[in-house]
Write a protein that binds this DNA or RNA. Structure first.
Lengths: 200, 200
DNA sequence: ATTGAATATGACAGGGGTGTCATAATGGCA
DNA sequence: TGCCATTATGACACCCCTGTCATATTCAAT
């Protein structure tokens, strides 16, 4: 947790500091991020930084907290539509990610960079987050029982495929900032997955 | 190119040096790799390292050269079986990667770490390598003409899917060292892609 | 106005990194 | 043996980093 001094900061200064931190963490992984660059950008002294935060980890956690708040602010109204099947669930999820990318691209990038950091601090943080794999797995099994998906399909495999393609689509369209095309591509992917490539 | 002194080294010493470099570059990305650790492991002095190589980049390129040689040595005899379709081509490729992972896991890992390094030096190197996307694309189009793949399937999309799943399978099974299971999983993936998930 | 707490500051210590260079050691050859 | 080119060495300069701390400044309350 950040130190009391951080919370006592006048709004303007705190905003400058937060902006500098977010900028740094969205450009560099936690490991590569530099407090020197942060304090330069925020125009505060090195000593001040350590009046606000215990250390770099403390600072990072504070930023993650802000991001979580913003995520909640944006998505609290989004009605969690009941998914008919795993493919619909996938599309729902992707549409939410699209909203998030558009609303807070910098925050989204912080998330991406988190995945690339191999430091134990970040790896521990990632592990705490429950993956979507379990969610997909359960949906796939349900769809198999409901006769929507062939029973001989390996749920684990299909889940892996969905998540793998997901990552690729997200990354590709995020760099191009072409979020609408991303949804279209996903729909095509799902169509292909359901029907298969074979001519019949 | 490495300096003449490097090539004049007695075999034993050169081997120790190469081993130390390969070990370092397979543990850390180029950016994170440390010459200090290399010379410590190779038991040579700092000055010597710079008698052999211009700098870290020079050293890295030398290692990539050795890796390329070894790749050629292993694969020159492998008959490039003529692929019937893109799915067969994919499996052929994966089987070759499996051989490579088993024969030289350290070299394979160097390749993986290359993808994770964002430094301009490494990014330039990566760009020079032709991707397999174009190869898959042409095969898919041919398969569509031959009536093996539905004409309304977007080749780009299918290619993206193949490559995306590929990466996931490779990574997952590489950490588990379960290369046979990897091939099985790929076959299941291809089967699923061809038939689709739908019950009919 | 005075005083004491809260806050701000940058010099500093300590660690790691790369690349250089004067000097020392080595090895082959006359 | 003596000489010279080649090779080996680690101290050094310089860079960037984090976290600390004595000191200075600010601010509010008496």
């Amino acid at each position: 947790m950040a130190k009391p001094t951080y919370y006592n900061l006048e709004k303007d200064k705190q905003d400058r500091l937060v902006d500098a931190c977010m900028e740094e963490f969205s450009r560099y992984t936690f490991s590569d991020a530099s407090i020197n660059r942060i304090i330069k950008r925020a125009e505060i002294s090195r000593g001040s930084f350590y009046q606000y935060f215990e250390d770099k980890e403390d600072c990072y956690l504070e930023m993650l907290g802000i991001i979580a708040q913003e995520k909640y602010r944006i998505f609290k109204d989004v009605v969690q539509t009941e998914a008919q099947n795993v493919f619909e669930a996938y599309l729902n999820m992707l549409r939410q990610v699209k909203l998030w990318m558009e609303a807070q691209p910098r925050y989204y990038k912080i998330g991406v960079l988190m995945e690339l950091d191999k430091s134990s601090f970040i790896q521990k943080l990632i592990k705490q987050n429950p993956g979507m794999m379990e969610y997909f797995l359960s949906l796939i099994r349900k769809d198999q029982q409901n006769g929507i998906i062939r029973p001989d399909v390996d749920p684990q495999l299909l889940s892996d495929m969905l998540i793998g393609i997901n990552q690729k689509l997200l990354m590709e369209h995020f760099v191009n900032k072409d979020y609408d095309r991303m949804i279209e591509a996903s729909e095509a992917v799902l169509d292909l997955l359901q029907k298969g490539t074979r001519v019949r």
